[in-house]
Amino acid sequence: MTDTLRPVADAQGSGAATPPRSPRARPRFSSLLSGSVLGLIPFTAYIVLFLALPTVIALVTGFVDKHGALTVDNLTALGDPVILRTFGNSLWLSALTAVIGALLGALFCYALLGAKPTGVLRSIVDAASGVLAQFGGVMLAFAFVATIGIQGMITVWLRTSFGVDIFADGVWLYDTPGLILPYIYFQVPLMIITFSPALESLKPQWAEANAMLGGGILSYWRHIGVPVLLPSFFGCLLLLFANAFSSFATAAALTSQGSQIVPLQIRAALTSETVLGRENLAGALALGMIVVMVVVMAIYSLLMRRAARWQR
């Protein structure tokens, strides 16, 4: 990219006769450069104020007490059995729905392999996936109450037609297990959105090479398809995990009482000042979430760098 810029820098300079020097050495260029740097200021200021500052505040409040003095007291709250259980809930819920979502989503992507890229099917799947993956939250909670709520369509149908009561052991929809189905409902579309570009990047030449060497469909997937796609698959799986882990709206709208997952615990800490008799617990919980997210996203970007090898 720097190479494509150099001719411009030369054209700005004293002409083609002089040997190319570093663009920064030219006075005219550097004056233009300083002018251009001003252009970066508004966005930088915006990012500092509304992304960097809130994040730093969120993380730092975990380290201060109500008088503003530094303390690690809030962090010890992360070891509290209640908090540990919420983190445990969040982790298993995210892991379970990520695995199921990734498998179903990958299967669906496989089914779309070879479908017309500009066709009606692809357009509808893309748009529907976008809506369901990004637009869920409150409305997703409504949908599942209407489906498997106490008077939900499926609940009633199973009860009247088959005599099956899905809530025989108590109503689980408004507790942590009730989040599994809604979460899968937004995980699968996200998998379709993020994983299908990887499948599309499988080169037809590889299938031809496989055929030329006498390979069949099984050997194609065993020796080419699966090894090439595996890093992308696990990368998308991690992204799904991160997505479920940070999701708040669905749980907030669905769960009736208690704070079974970390985002709900943060809300409780934010709205009721003291949880477990501690101030600034929200900051400590936010720190805990960020640690998990950073680890997950770091592994994700490593996997994606590996996957990029085959996507040229």
């Binding site: 990012i47 500052l53 809130p54 505040i57 969120a58 882990f245 809300r267 934010l270």
Partner: peptide
């Protein structure tokens, strides 16, 4: 990196710091 950062920072975390802002 900056533009993709909001994926790593959950909205619920951002909101903790946004309240004072």
């Amino acid at each position: 990196f900056i533009c993709l950062l909001p994926i790593t920072i959950p909205a619920i975390v951002l909101v903790v710091g946004l309240a004072p802002v």
